[in-house]
Nucleic acid binder design. Structure first.
Length: 555
RNA sequence: GCUCCCGUGGUGAAACGGAUAUCACAGCAGUCUUCGGAACUGCUAUUCCAGGUUCGAAUCCUGGCGGGAGCACCA
């Protein structure tokens, strides 16, 4: 059934008889002319067997014998063994893509309880572009694990206490503006932050407010706090809807803080944490890491203590098998210390925890919207891109141009984030993202809309979609067949960029095919071509879903 | 100063130690009696430097140069 598995089985047998100590793995040749699958095993083991690579390759091929679903095996280059899938194998793939709900899915993480923490914005502050990056990557990783059969829960951890909150409340008191107005909250925070740095009077007042927020001792401040917090959180919720994220769990610093403190205090006796200059620290230096403060000299928990507490809070809510935490890469070093401490306190949880750091998004200064001033927030970026896409959307076939413009804007940003390796800084080029040409999210969306249109047109013309098992496999079909392998590898390596790069190459192949091939040409061959377009449509849609990008049917 | 990450055409990126280093943008030259031109075709142009490991290095190791992040009471 599965041709790749047949190849691996045949290779394993051949390796065993030839005494080659390798588990049979396959790769996709970069160039399709080098086949659908390939192995470089003969190159790797030529030396130890005392043969020339091509000689060994000959032996492997001879031992492997005839393999089901394969039309051709050849030895090429220095000693690669290339496998070409047979037309009927592609026919089966196309049928599967068109009919199976599980096309592209795998069971590598079947039933594994998986929690992914990402986004983590702070109420009372703006949703900045860093949150956009975290959200995009976290959502895509979540979806990759859904496709791998895992039981995935999405978690968001929001900083609802701390000095930033006090600053915003101080600003609200000064301005007298409504805490129900998100923009006013933003202004209040900006004013508070400025005053906190500039003025000593304000500084003292903010410190006082901060304490009052913690112990809820002042009714007026409680009121501003509660209303402002709700405004912020509701606003974030609206953004999550636009971005296509739905969280299962929300955690707050106001809960993780006290619990984290408890955990730290409980582990002073056993020597995990130590007093130092009035603070409570973890001596990472003894393990080649930094020494980090977990409780400051006022006894308040820092980020490290909170995240430590959070790991346990998550587990109590959802006893996970694996936990992923997506954050910016500026906290890589802290996270190492955190994991070391966690390993002493909750060793079982530490083993299950993986930090997924991502790079910073850098904007090309001066090119962004001037409407919003100097501060480019996550939402202003999307608003700016939506507006730029709107004109084009109005001329489109879409029923709701505003909705389409937003879908395109989100696709443009998300693709820019996901197209490259997680961890490297992202240079956001507004022109490139919006040009909607070539290497972009909207380019993939457009290929999908085209495929959708042709399938609808075929239906109107009553051209039935039928896979022809003898049809010569096209470039589109051959790339399409790679989809499940790509998805698998992307999840295994936590690399959504593999899916993004694949989709653009696949969409490009489809566009090329579309330009050179008259699909509804009135001949019997049209049936197969419509089926191929249909399988392409489905694969693009699923692939975009894995990136967290919508696939509009018309644009 | 120490630690970590990075250095690929003019620009932004890809390449799980493997085949002629791939793609997009920009530039130049083309395609349209066509199912959707947000498309397609062609041309120009790339692995920071010096050693080393390997049958084979953009990828691994050492050193240098250049850029970024972090280096206890923020997250």
């Amino acid at each position: 059934m599965d041709a790749a598995q047949s190849i691996r089985d045949a290779l394993s047998r051949a390796f065993q008889t030839l005494g080659i100590p390798e588990e049979a793995t396959l790769e996709h040749p970069g160039e399709l002319e080098n086949g659908d699958y390939a192995t470089g095993a003969a190159l790797r083991h030529a030396k130890q067997t005392g043969m020339k690579p091509r000689e060994l390759a000959e032996k492997i091929v001879a031992e492997a014998g005839k393999i089901g679903g394969i039309s051709k095996v050849e030895i090429a280059g220095a000693g690669f063994i290339n496998f070409y899938l047979a037309p009927e194998t592609f026919a089966a793939v196309l049928e599967e893509a068109r009919s199976s709900d599980t096309w592209g899915a795998n069971e590598n993480e079947k039933g594994k309880k998986t929690i992914v923490e990402y986004t983590d914005p702070n109420p009372f502050k703006e949703f900045h572009i860093g949150h956009l990056v975290t959200n995009t990557i976290g959502e895509s990783i979540s979806r990759l694990f859904v496709y791998a059969g895992a039981d995935v829960k999405r978690a968001n951890y929001q900083g609802d206490v701390g000095r930033h909150v006090a600053r915003a409340i101080w600003g609200l008191i000064q301005s007298g503006e409504s805490p129900e107005d998100v923009k006013a909250l933003g202004r209040a925070y900006a004013a508070g932050a400025k005053a906190d740095i500039d003025g000593s009077v304000a500084k003292a007042e903010i410190t006082a407010i901060n304490r009052e927020v913690y112990d809820r001792s002042d009714e007026k401040i409680n009121d501003l706090y509660d209303r402002g917090r709700k405004t912020s959180l509701d606003h974030f919720e609206m953004l999550y809807a636009i971005l296509g994220t739905k969280f299962d769990f929300y955690f707050f610093e106001s809960e993780a803080g006290p619990f984290g403190k408890e955990v730290v205090l409980a582990h002073i006796k056993d020597g995990v944490f130590k007093e130092s200059d009035g603070a409570t620290v973890y001596e990472g230096e003894k393990k080649g890491l930094h020494t980090r403060v977990f409780l400051n000299s006022e006894g308040l928990p820092t980020y490290e203590a909170k995240e430590l507490g959070l790991s346990k809070m998550k587990y109590e809510k959802f006893p996970y098998d694996q936990s992923f935490i997506v954050t910016g890469n500026e906290i890589i070093e802290y996270f190492k210390v955190l994991l070391a401490a966690m390993n002493d306190v909750f060793p079982d949880l530490a083993k299950k925890t993986t930090h997924v750091p991502h790079g910073m998004m850098r904007l090309e200064v001066g090119k962004m919207s001037s409407r919003t001033g100097n501060v480019i927030t996550g939402e202003s970026l999307i608003a700016d891109l939506s507006e730029a896409a709107r004109e084009r959307a109005k001329e489109s076939r879409a029923e709701d141009a505003d909705r389409l413009a937003e879908q395109i804007a989100v696709a443009a940003v998300k693709y820019q984030i996901l197209r490259q390796a997680t961890g490297k800084d992202i240079i956001f080029n507004r022109e490139q993202a919006l040009s909607l040409e070539g290497d972009s999210g909207p380019y993939i969306q457009y290929a999908h809309a085209r495929a959708q249109a042709i399938v609808e047109k075929a239906r109107e013309q009553k051209v039935e979609a039928n896979v022809n098992p003898a049809a010569e496999p096209s470039e589109v079909a051959r790339l399409l067949a790679r989809f499940p392998d790509i998805v698998e590898r992307a999840a295994k390596n936590l690399e959504p960029q593999l899916v993004a790069n694949y989709l653009v190459a696949f969409a490009s192949a489809f566009n090329r095919w579309y330009a050179n091939e008259h699909i509804l040409d009135g001949t019997p061959a049209a049936s197969h071509k419509v089926a191929l377009a249909d399988a392409t449509r489905i694969t693009l849609k699923k692939g975009l879903w894995l990136l967290g990008i919508e696939a509009p049917e018309r644009m």
